[in-house]
């Protein structure tokens, strides 16, 4: 960059950085407004909209549902995703390219198409507006990110360790539990985290398959903001941004731990 004109470049980068940060940071002061309607800057500040969240059964139920569905989705998508990732990394079966397309498909097909299809199938099974239906739908959407996270770990494994274990008489399950699983553990943790976040943030499919009796947090927020900005939703958004920042730092630490381990001599 020595002889490229630096100043305009840095100016553009600074503006883009501002553009990226602004919509999240403006929520913070507005979430502390004391007024019923959102206006910038607020005339007076209070925590009444935060209190409103913690005192409203409707909001708290939605958050509890989201947490339950998110944890279950993380568990199910990890249980299904880890073996798929190991297959993609190890097997040479001729159908695997098709499996790959099937697995990454949900990340590329527009969610509204998954939503409308899922709605029809869950209606047949009478699972719409239910906890298992939501977990199943969110797991479909989480699998691509889980598999890709685990695959990144699995590709770095040294097969000879497993062969050595197998040649010493360990059963395939034992080989997997004692040599493969510890090695891919950081990828599995990140995958599970991705699975949880995918479910926690999911709106479009949930809009189709939840009803007034069982709502997730994004659906509840959506119902509040679709017509006009709502102070409680802004307070909840601020809390969610705080939460996602914590998740980001966790993911960063896990990734760093993984690269540290790689550098450690055997």
């Amino acid at each position: 960059m020595t002889r490229w004109s630096k100043v305009p470049l840095v100016a553009v980068a600074a503006l883009v950085g501002l553009f990226l940060a602004l919509p999240t940071f403006v929520l913070v002061p507005l979430s502390f407004t004391d007024e019923r309607t959102l206006r910038f800057p607020p005339d007076s500040y209070s925590v009444r909209w935060y209190r409103n969240f913690f005192e409203s059964p409707q909001w708290l139920d939605a958050a509890a549902h989201s947490l339950a569905v998110g944890l279950s989705t993380a568990a199910l998508s990890t249980v299904l995703g880890v073996p798929i990732a190991m297959s993609l990394a190890r097997s040479r079966h001729r159908l695997l390219p098709l499996v790959n397309v099937l697995v990454i498909g949900p990340a590329l097909v527009p969610p509204v198409i998954v939503a409308i299809g899922m709605f029809g199938v869950l209606a047949e099974l009478d699972l719409n507006r239910s906890f298992p239906g939501l977990v199943a739908a969110h797991t479909v959407l989480a699998l691509p990110v889980v598999v890709i996270a685990v695959l990144a770990s699995a590709r770095t494994l040294d097969v000879t360790v497993e062969r050595a274990a197998a040649s010493l008489g360990a059963s395939p399950v034992r080989v997997f539990v004692h040599t493969v699983l510890p090695a891919i553990a950081p990828g599995v943790v990140i995958g599970a985290l991705y699975g949880f976040v995918t479910s926690w943030d999911e709106l479009v499919v949930s809009l189709f398959i939840t009803g007034p009796t069982y709502q997730t947090l994004p659906v509840q927020m959506w119902n509040q903001v679709r017509n006009t900005a709502d102070p409680t939703a802004v307070a909840v958004s601020t809390m969610l941004i705080t939460l996602s920042t914590i998740v980001l730092v966790t993911a960063y630490l896990v990734t760093r731990a993984r690269s540290d381990r790689k550098r450690r001599p055997l």
Binding site: L20, T24, L240, T245
Partner: peptide
């Protein structure tokens, strides 16, 4: 600055844009 938005739900960021 890039990663915080990536980890924040589309809906939350849309609400941010709404108040902006």
């Amino acid at each position: 600055l890039v990663l915080v938005p990536v980890w924040t739900a589309f809906l939350v960021r849309s609400i941010g844009m709404q108040v902006l």
